[in-house]
Amino acid sequence: MNSRLIRKLHRWLGLVFSLSVLIASGSGVIHNVMTRTQSPPPQARPSGGGMDVSAIKITVADAVSKLPGDKPEVQAVNLRGIGGQPWYQIYTKATRGPQYVSAVDGRVDAAMDEAYAAEIARNFLAGASVKKTDFLTAFNTEYINIFRILPVYRFDAGDALDTRVYVSTTTGSVTRHTDRQRQFEATIFTNFHKLGFIPDKDTRDLVLTLLTAGTFLVACLGVALFFVTRPKKR
Rank of each mutant, 00 (worst) to 15 (best):
D179N: 15
T59A: 02
K57P: 01
F135C: 13
F227Q: 11
Q99M: 13
S20D: 04
P42F: 03
V53T: 11
T137K: 14
P68E: 14
A115I: 11
D105P: 00
V64S: 12
M34A: 08
S54R: 09
L79R: 01
R180G: 08
P86W: 00
L9R: 05
Q183N: 15
S168Y: 03
A63M: 01
L13F: 10
S20H: 10
T212I: 09
G214Y: 02
A219C: 14
R176M: 14
T171E: 10
G81Q: 05
G84E: 05
G196A: 10
F189C: 06
T35G: 06
L211W: 12
T215R: 08
N2E: 07
Y143I: 07
L5S: 13
N2C: 07
L125T: 15
A103L: 00
R230P: 13
R164T: 05
I56D: 11
L150W: 07
N123L: 05
I56E: 09
P199A: 08
P68W: 04
V77A: 07
R176F: 06
G158D: 10
P86D: 02
N78C: 02
D113V: 05
E73M: 12
A61E: 15
F197P: 14
R96W: 02
S54E: 09
D202K: 14
G97H: 11
V33R: 01
N78T: 07
N123F: 01
S102M: 00
Q89W: 02
S54K: 09
D62E: 15
G222Q: 04
A61C: 04
R180N: 13
A128E: 15
E185D: 11
R164E: 07
R36I: 04
E73N: 15
S25G: 13
T163A: 06
N78A: 08
T37V: 12
A63L: 01
I56P: 06
T203H: 10
A24N: 03
Y116D: 14
P199W: 04
V223Y: 08
V101W: 00
F139D: 12
D179K: 05
I188W: 13
A219G: 15
L19H: 07
K131Q: 15
L67I: 10
N145C: 03
T95N: 12
D200P: 02
A160Q: 13
R122L: 06
S168C: 07
V33E: 05
L225M: 13
A61I: 03
P86R: 00
V165R: 01
D62Y: 00
